[in-house]
């Protein structure tokens, strides 16, 4: 099977039903994407599939064929303008505690900001709705809110 991950093509020999998460983590060695629940309940495994945030633990690799997968490693590598702004805001606000959920939080936040109409600043309610699928057991929510607002301001 051919997968395009972070702009590179990979041939993987796995069960088409295997969730993208395990192809990334166990087959390709990209461990920045995290396993939290395996059931689309926590958001830790969020990646972008053709730019849209999806839960990679519950999306089979077969669905990614012919599409582009982007993971935390690429989105925060610098070239992605929104990803870079979100990461910078995350660092500035010192959001992470244990950090385990934060790859998923950043991927959800980045997809959310990218989907906003040009120049539009999100309301607090919109931020909460967009991030409601991402659990942080360490309770970093106050700083996540502040970082998202800050990142979207910085992108105007």
């Amino acid at each position: 099977m051919q997968l395009v991950v972070n702009g590179r093509e990979h041939t993987v020999d796995v069960d088409p039903a295997m969730p993208i998460l395990w192809a990334l983590r166990d087959t390709l060695g990209l461990t920045g994407t995290k396993f939290g629940c395996g059931a689309a309940l926590c958001g830790a495994c969020t990646v972008h599939l053709d730019g849209e945030a999806v839960r990679s633990c519950s999306t089979p690799v077969s669905e990614a064929v012919g599409k582009k997968i982007a993971t935390i490693e690429a989105v925060t590598a610098g070239a992605d303008r929104v990803g870079a702004a979100v990461q910078a805001a995350w660092i500035k606000h010192d959001v992470a505690q244990c950090g385990y959920c934060q790859s998923g939080q950043i991927m959800s936040a980045t997809a959310f900001i990218k989907a906003l109409p040009r120049g539009k600043q999100p309301t607090p309610e919109e931020i909460d709705t967009a991030m409601a699928g991402n659990i942080c057991r360490c309770g970093t929510y106050a700083r996540i809110r502040a970082a998202i607002a800050d990142a979207s301001r910085s992108l105007v």
Binding site: L30, T31, G32, T33, T71, I72, E73, T76, A77, Q87, W90, I91, D94, V95, A96, G99, Q102, S103, I106
Partner: peptide, 13 residues
């Protein structure tokens, strides 16, 4: 700022 802030926002941790 936490010493691991960079690693924990880039998938590197």
């Amino acid at each position: 700022q936490r010493l691991d802030a960079q690693a924990k926002t880039s998938g590197k941790q």
